[in-house]
Design a protein around this nucleic acid. Structure first.
Length: 521
DNA sequence: AATGTGACCAACCGCAGTCAA
DNA sequence: GTTGACTGCGGTTGGTCACAT
């Protein structure tokens, strides 16, 4: 709803701001209307609206820079376009969003992320700005209320749609129409893992990462489709899986990434028909020598972009979707903020790193879950397996969690985050120092810190390949050292204990005394 | 009643991308 | 290949309003 004019219809208010010339909007803002009148900013008046409406009625939409030239309106073309699009268009639908619209927005956002304009096309009469404002408000509201953003029903729906849309041929052969240089690493990784799983109940929040704006930015107009991944890239990822096996590291077991998705079998398997040959020469994997040259091309090729959460900076509790009071957390009592969690935000960029956020957010959930699960298991029956670690109660389809109709779900992508956060070492630049202690207790030196966010890129436009490579590299080092009895890399607040029996690491955080976390196995 | 606070939202800025000339 | 016009988007700002103190 347009703001009430703050003055009479004389077109200029006492608070009107006169814009100095600038180069914005194709130079239009630097120009002057008619008689060199400076461009005006601030709320539109009724008179200005009338002028603009009349102009559009006569000339139609478009060529907005001509408006000021031909109508005498002291507004830049961009401002005219925005005003028309957001307030003056005759087909605009005023008023607050209906419950149906709100639900649709949530669904659309789950599918396409912050593609406000595209979302607006599905909401007749609504503008992208409206939707964006609504979503930002929703984020804040959910954060305040401790509610997740996506309800499980929407998650399931998205997941089902994605399954239907999946086309293995497109994936393998590449979609020439959308063969863009950006790839959805979350899809890649999740699918890569899925290809090794007989059963994969995948969180739609794998599609949060994948189908949301992160994917869309890379994939353009087909958010729900699988990202076309070049074969060589896919091979690299497959090799990565092989690498783990080479190292004696168990492949990531199948697990339920999404607690509420217990029926959607992920039927697609990349192993079927994919011309992948097991690496005949494992020795060529440079990871065995401490670096991962196989990821060199990956790095710099895979650019991941992420959903914007636009969350406010509220100091300690900076995690937008995962407040301490979240029913998801408190209800199960599995997830709670930790010093580590809060420390993450200190390293996270404050803007639009959607994947990063989803990764860390998901990892936080998984991490906390895993910690508790492992902790319980450890108490009950000794060392846990990685499978135990992953299959946390939170992921139990039978969970009795109640979801608010407008709330949502724990993000997704537990897997992708788990890759970065749980199964791989979290730091880079490991240094082995001295002789490991006799009984597999290790510490590590970190070049960047001690937890997940530190190993994530700190800028937008993450190069996931680089991150993965670093992680893998650290993984390798640790793994090797652990195989020799454990690591001792001083200088960090965290220790990693290697449990040889199940090939699982237990993280002991010296600054987080509440629980031990399984790190990777 | 006065004041403070926070939510909401229109509008703006800067940047990137697309498209046509 | 370059340029200009336009569009889309993330992020932000500032005004208004409702509510609490």
């Amino acid at each position: 709803m347009p703001p009430a004019p703050n003055d009479s219809d004389n077109g200029m208010t006492s608070t009107d701001e006169i814009d100095p010339p600038s180069s914005e909007e194709g130079g239009s803002r630097g120009s002057f209307s008619g008689g060199n009148a400076p461009l005006k900013k601030g709320p539109w008046t009724d008179a200005e609206d009338a002028i603009l409406v009349e102009y559009v009625r006569k000339h139609g939409e478009g060529n907005w820079n001509a408006v000021q030239r031909h109508s005498g309106l002291s507004r830049c073309g961009k401002s005219c376009r925005l005003r028309w699009a957001n307030h003056l268009r005759p087909d605009l639908r005023k008023g607050s969003f209906s419950p149906e619209e709100e639900k649709l927005i949530v669904e659309l956002h789950a599918k396409m992320g912050n593609k406000w304009a595209r979302m607006a096309t599905s909401l007749p009469g609504r503008t992208d700005n409206e939707i964006k404002n609504y979503w930002n408000t929703r984020i804040k509201r959910c954060q305040r209320a401790g509610l997740p953003l996506y309800p499980p029903d929407i998650s399931s729906q998205i997941m089902n749609e994605k399954q239907q849309n999946m086309n293995i041929d497109d994936f393998i052969m590449g979609d020439k129409q959308h063969n863009e240089p950006s790839y959805n690493i979350a899809d890649i990784l999740v699918d890569d893992i899925q290809s090794n799983q007989e059963v994969s109940n995948v969180s739609p929040y794998s599609s949060f990462c994948s189908s949301s704006s992160m994917a869309n930015r890379g994939m353009g107009s087909h958010p729900d489709r699988m990202s076309p991944i070049p074969i060589d890239l896919y091979k690299q990822l497959r090799e990565n899986d092989e690498l783990l096996s080479d190292l004696g590291i168990p492949r990531i077991p199948k697990f339920n990434l999404f607690p509420y998705e217990n029926s959607g079998k992920f039927s697609r398997s990349f192993n079927l028909g994919f011309p992948y040959e097991p690496d005949p020469d494992p020795g060529r994997h440079s990871h065995l020598h401490g670096n991962f040259s196989t990821f060199q091309s990956f790095q710099g090729t895979v650019k991941v972009e992420l959903p914007s959460l636009q969350y406010p900076d509220n100091g300690n509790d900076s995690w937008p979707f995962f407040p301490e009071t979240s029913p998801v957390l408190s209800g199960d009592a599995y997830l709670k903020s930790s010093p580590t969690a809060s420390s993450q935000s200190e390293f996270l960029p404050r803007r639009n790193d959607e994947l990063l956020e989803s990764l860390v957010y998901g990892s936080q959930a998984l991490s906390c879950n895993s910690r508790m699960q492992l902790y319980d298991k450890s108490l009950d029956a000794g060392n846990p397996s990685l499978y135990d670690v992953i299959r946390s109660p939170l992921h139990d389809p039978g969970s009795d969690n109640k979801w608010d109709a407008n709330s949502s779900f724990i993000p997704l992508n537990s897997f992708a985050s788990s890759v970065s956060n749980e199964f791989f070492p979290l730091t880079t630049g490991f240094t082995l120092c001295g002789t490991p202690p006799e009984h597999a207790s290790s510490t590590m030196e970190s070049s960047g810190g001690s937890y997940s966010s530190e190993c994530l890129p700190s800028t937008s436009g993450n190069e996931f390949g680089g991150m993965l490579m670093e992680n893998l590299s650290g993984f390798n080092v640790e793994k090797q050292a652990a195989a020799n009895g454990g690591l001792l890399i001083p200088g960090t607040e965290e220790q990693y204990q290697y449990l040889s029996e199940d090939d699982v690491y237990i993280k002991h955080s010296l600054h987080d005394h509440t629980e031990d976390a399984p790190v990777f196995g």
